[in-house]
Simulated assay, not measured.
Amino acid sequence: MIPFVDLKAQHAGVRTEINDAIQRVLDSCHFTLGPEVTAFETEFASYCQAQEGVAVNTGTSALHLALLAAGVGPGDEVITVPFTFVATVSAIQYTGATPVFVDIDPRTFTMDPTQIRAAIGPRTKAIVPVHLYGQPADMDPILAIARERGLVVIEDAAQAHGAEYKGRRAGSMGDMGCFSFYPGKNLGACGEGGMIVTSNPQFARTMRMLRDWGAEKKYHHVLKGYNYRMEAIQGAVLRVKLRHLERWTEARRAAAKRYDRLLAESGVSTPVAMPYARHVYHVYAIRTAHRQVWQETLEAKGVQTGIHYPFPVHLLPAFGDLGYAAGRFPHSERAASEVLSLPMFPELTEAQSAQVSEAVRSLAATSDLCAAGA
């Protein structure tokens, strides 16, 4: 069976380094925040071309604190997309603000900038573009609109570690950029973790207080805060993995090129890497109108797949109170019904890529014959 993600293969290559890093933390007995986390903040912020990093316990916490630092709260509105993981929208609601959706560009699965102006109202406070699947949103027009209207831009870069837009790293273009280090991410912890990067020192100062119960120093609580601190072991592990991230990223990009080549002229809709982007392929998502059959058949052929994501947020029962009906965001809804993610990880071999591609090509040919017969 070819796995969708092979974390064991990745861990095997860095096991000794990670074991040494964890032992260093155990020996120090400094288990929360501390020097390992501080060092990781500096190193990751530099990698993202930002001045400051604020490490937290999850990517969701990163989004929450970035919104709070931007002054988002009850009565405000925040523009984002419905084709994303629910954490993007939940973090907005945690602040008491209301998410306002715009549809995606069907080529990239990211925010369509042409729809933003119509969504801006008197209560709009921020825009949260999502760099989905490892490709940055089209940031220049988004940033231009934000500057024109005095809006804060918070990049949801949870799937875009090392991605670039016109040479600028994901997370460095807006006022703040938020990352997740969930284990399956391009840069994944041995557990949970998150980070906000920014070049605004005031935002960084506010978020550092908010993550640690609002304390400026011990027992001096300036703000009403949260327990969102990163554990030292995760900081140490992520420092090790960050040193390998560029190599892993290039391996992902090479695997994507193999898929592109092997699936060319098959009729399969493959990812579109925009000319402005360095796509880092957190996910390699194809599209098919026969997704359930394809997924079941590929599984039977020894190929695991994933779906990111099967429902747009506005149609999930948990977010029915937002009042959006089916048909409101057609590109998001169609993508949610068609996307199918193929195996993608740095250690994916040429033989595995060929096996996956042959199985997909066979399905595409069969589907074409069925469609022609119908």
Rank of each mutant, 00 (worst) to 15 (best):
M1Y: 13
D6Y: 09
A9V: 07
Q10A: 11
H11Q: 13
G13L: 13
D20H: 13
R24Q: 12
S28E: 11
F31H: 13
T32F: 10
T32A: 11
L33K: 06
V37I: 09
A39K: 11
E41R: 08
A45I: 05
C48V: 01
A50K: 02
A50T: 01
A50G: 00
E52Y: 15
E52R: 13
V54I: 15
A55D: 04
T58Q: 08
S61F: 14
H64S: 09
L67S: 01
L68G: 03
D76I: 00
P82R: 06
A87S: 14
I92N: 03
T108D: 01
D112R: 06
T114H: 12
I116V: 12
A119Y: 07
A119F: 03
A119M: 08
G121Y: 09
P122F: 10
R123Y: 11
A137K: 00
R147S: 12
E148F: 04
R149V: 10
I154K: 00
I154H: 04
D156E: 09
A157D: 04
A158I: 03
R169N: 07
R169Q: 08
R169V: 07
R169L: 10
R169C: 11
G174S: 01
F179K: 04
S180R: 02
Y182S: 13
N186G: 10
N186F: 01
A189D: 14
C190R: 14
G191M: 13
G193N: 07
G194M: 06
G194A: 12
T198Q: 00
T198K: 00
S199N: 04
S199A: 08
P201W: 06
Q202V: 15
Q202M: 14
A204T: 06
A204M: 06
M207W: 04
M207F: 03
R208H: 14
M209S: 03
L210S: 03
K218H: 14
K218S: 11
H221P: 02
G225A: 05
Y226H: 14
R229N: 12
A232L: 07
A232S: 15
A236V: 05
A236P: 02
L238I: 03
L245D: 03
E246F: 07
E246V: 09
R258S: 08
Y259P: 04
L262D: 04
G267H: 06
V272C: 15
A273G: 09
M274H: 11
A277D: 04
H279C: 07
V280W: 01
H282N: 15
V283A: 15
V283K: 12
A289C: 12
W294F: 14
W294C: 03
T297I: 01
L298C: 02
A300F: 00
Q304H: 10
I307W: 06
Y309C: 04
P312A: 11
V313C: 07
F319H: 05
G320S: 13
G320C: 10
D321H: 15
G323P: 05
A325V: 10
A326S: 13
S332G: 07
E333V: 07
E333D: 08
E333L: 10
R334M: 14
R334T: 12
A336W: 05
M344F: 08
M344L: 12
F345A: 03
E347I: 01
E350D: 14
E350R: 11
Q355A: 13
V356Y: 01
S362M: 11
L363N: 02
L363V: 03
A374S: 14
